[in-house]
Design a protein around this nucleic acid. Structure first.
Lengths: 155, 155
DNA sequence: CATGGACGGTAGCCATGGCTACATTATTGC
DNA sequence: GCAATAATGTAGCCATGGCTACCGTCCATG
């Protein structure tokens, strides 16, 4: 039972229409992006492992991503359905052309973000850590601005 | 059935120990942060609604956050357990002191990130959109660097 | 003062992304 | 060639964060 009468403006004509709607869209978009983040981390890790060990394997991915091999297997299944990787049971994991392109884009973007942060005087480790989280939310416009800043550093 | 013998270096002594471990930690950390992101978005929205309408209500939050009122109710329950908000059924939602502090920090951080992006020449709307995603991953060091850049803009 | 419609809440579904525990397959070393 | 071990895969659990459908509350207004 409620403890008393609510005399708050319940029937107010909402009034938070314009800007609130826009922010809602931004937030929805950000949430949608989150689905891609994992895929990006995976294809990047697969590309790296393939480059350094000749082939990406489940345990290697698990170690690199900080999850159990079970999680890797399940996520790989999704990436397979999404067309980013190919994999047969007990064999290594390979990127499709699409996956390769995504990995290359991610690697480039990650490098740019990390370099930009370092150029602001942020310590290596912190820059790397922040880049890991930031990179997935950097639009092409912002990425271009970062690159421009790196090209002509402040005096 | 596998289509043939795998002659890949399975028994290699892992060799991806040092840097891979570090990256795994970074990624784990980023994943952990994700749990906080929602809380941050909520307390910020609650603070805004309280400021502009006198009280935060479920439907208002739902509109602002771009989700259904059901999602809001469930998340509020979690935030309540976490000690960020207080709420009784059919009453408005209020921030605890802790929630208030978090909201203030988030608002400040969001403003800083958005202003920094705008200072790089990124269009208002894009800056706002990117800030929404980036803000949750900005460490204190990086935030300080952004603020420093804003204080003395490039000539 | 009754009631309609907005608001708030519950039940139950789905997908994702973790996990442990257990089973299966490949490789390797004896 | 066979056993041990590491890698891979399966089953099933939990939490989170969406959703729809439906039901309950409340209060402004006729």
């Amino acid at each position: 039972m409620p403890t008393g009468p609510a005399k708050n403006g319940r029937r107010r004509p909402t009034r938070t229409a314009g800007p609130a709607k826009r922010q809602a869209d931004y937030l929805s978009q950000t949430r949608r992006e989150h689905a891609h983040e994992i895929a990006e981390d995976y294809v990047e890790a697969i590309a790296d492992l393939a480059a350094e060990a000749g082939q990406a394997r489940v345990v290697g991915l698990a170690r690199r991503l900080g999850v159990t091999h079970v999680t890797v297997i399940r996520t790989i299944a999704r990436l397979k359905k999404a067309g980013f990787v190919t994999a047969q049971p007990y064999r290594g994991i390979s990127l499709t052309d699409e996956g390769c392109a995504l990995a290359a884009m991610c690697k480039n973007r990650h490098e740019t973000v990390a370099a930009f942060l370092r150029s602001l005087g942020i310590p290596e480790q912190v820059a790397e850590m922040d880049a890991e989280g930031i990179e997935h939310h950097v639009s092409p416009e912002t990425l271009a601005a970062f690159k421009a800043c790196l090209r002509k550093p402040r005096p």
